[in-house]
Simulated assay, not measured.
Amino acid sequence: MKKILIVFLMSTLFLSCASSSDETLAAPIVTEQMYFPPIDGSSTWETKSITDLGWNQAAVQPLLNYLELKNTKSFIVLVNGKIVLENYFNGHDAAKFWQWNSAGKTLTATVTGIAQKEGLLNINNKVSDYLGTGWTSTPIAKENLITCKNLLSMNSGLNDALGDDVSPTNLQYVANAGTRWAYHNVYVKLQDVVAQASGQSWNSYFNTKLRDKIGMSTTGFWYVGTGIYKGLSIYFSNTRSMARFGLLSLNKGTWNGTTILNETYFNEATNTSQTINQAYGYLWWLNGKTSYHLPQTQLKINGNLIATAPSDMYCALGKDDQKVYVVPSKKMVVIRMGEAADSENLALSDFDEVLWQKISALYQ
C-alpha cells in the first residue's frame, strides 16, 4: 500500500511540474514598451544600464576612448527610447549646441512630408508649381521636369559642381531630372516650397510642426548662410534634440502614439528613392544595399554603405561626422556630434566602419 501511495504521489508531482513547465513555455514573450521622454522641457529621460541589457560592460571604455580620440563632442545611445550611454567630451556638455550640417537634411525631408500629410503640397508636383518659373537658369522645359521628389532624391539634374549657392544663376542644367544622381545643395529649395505652400516662414512651420511636437530644444536655430556660405541652411541644437529626432525616426514618424509624419511617406524616405544610388532615400542614407554613390562623385561602389553596421540601418550623415544612426532591428538610435574624426569629410569615412565595430562589441 505504501508503494502504491508513493508511486501515486510521485506521478502527481511529475504531472504538476510538467504542467507548470508547459505553461511557462507557452507564456507570451513580453516586449518592452517603447519609451518617449516628456516634451515639457524637463531634463527627465529614463535610462537603461548596460547590465540590464545584458551587454558587454568591458566594451564600453574602448568605445569611449575611441570617440574622445576622434574629436567627438557628444555621443548618445538609445535602446527602446531609453538612454544607455550619454557622454560628452572635449569641453562639450549637454547644454551646448553643435551644428547638424548635412545630417539636418533629414529634418527638411521630414517637414516636407509633414506638409504633404497636411495636404499643402505634393512631392510629385514640379517645384515651379510652388516657386514659380525661373527659380533655376535652365530652360523652362527642363526646369519643369524637376519635381520636389527629385530634390528629396538628389536627382534634379542640376550642376553639383557650382557650390552651395542656390540662386537661379547658380542652378544650371547638366541632365534631365531623374537621369543623374548628384549630391547637391539644391534640396534646400524645399524649405522655400514648404514656406510658400504653408503661408508661413520655414522657421515657424518647422518649430510648430516638428520641433515642439517632440520636445526638441526651443532655442535650437537655423543658420542661413551669407557671402561665400550663401545657400546653406544648417540646424544647431543640443545633442538630446538630435536624439529626439532619431527616436521619432525609429518609430517611423510617430511620437508616443501621435502621428507626426505619415508612415507611408517615412517608409518611402528610408528606402531607395531612385534607380542610380541604391543607398539613398529622401535625404536619408541607407545601409544594406548592393551599391552606393558618395557625394561629389558619379562612381558606383559595390557593397554596403557601412559594412560593419546592421544592414537595416538608415542614417543622417553630415560634414565633419555628424551622425544619426537608426537601427530598427535593435530598436536603437546612435548619435554622434563633433569635429571631423580625421581629415575633413563630407559624409562617410573609415571612422564609421571602426565606430560600428566598437558599438557592435557592446552587444555581440
Rank of each mutant, 00 (worst) to 15 (best):
I359Q: 00
L232Y: 15
I359D: 01
T24M: 07
L210T: 05
L171A: 04
L355Q: 10
T226N: 14
G227F: 12
N144A: 04
D22G: 05
N251H: 13
F89N: 06
T169P: 10
T308I: 01
K300Y: 09
L248W: 03
A18G: 06
T24A: 11
S217T: 03
V60E: 00
S49V: 05
K331I: 07
L121W: 00
S43Q: 09
A316W: 13
T272M: 15
E32M: 09
T297W: 09
L250F: 14
M154H: 03
K126F: 01
I214H: 07
S49A: 05
A141W: 10
A341M: 02
N262K: 04
G41V: 09
N124A: 09
D129C: 03
E46F: 13
F8H: 12
Y292L: 08
R180Q: 15
P62N: 00
N125P: 00
E353W: 13
I140P: 01
K70M: 11
L15K: 06
K319A: 15
T12N: 09
A341I: 08
Y282A: 00
N256L: 04
L5V: 13
N302A: 12
L121N: 00
T264D: 11
I39R: 04
P28R: 12
L299M: 12
S20V: 12
E86D: 01
L250E: 04
D52H: 08
L85N: 07
S311F: 12
I6G: 07
M1F: 14
S74A: 00
D40Q: 01
L171V: 06
L162C: 03
D352R: 05
M10K: 10
S16K: 10
V188N: 11
N159T: 15
T51R: 12
G157D: 10
V79I: 15
A307Q: 10
I146S: 06
S360D: 02
V79R: 11
V333L: 03
L63E: 01
A59G: 08
G318L: 01
E344G: 12
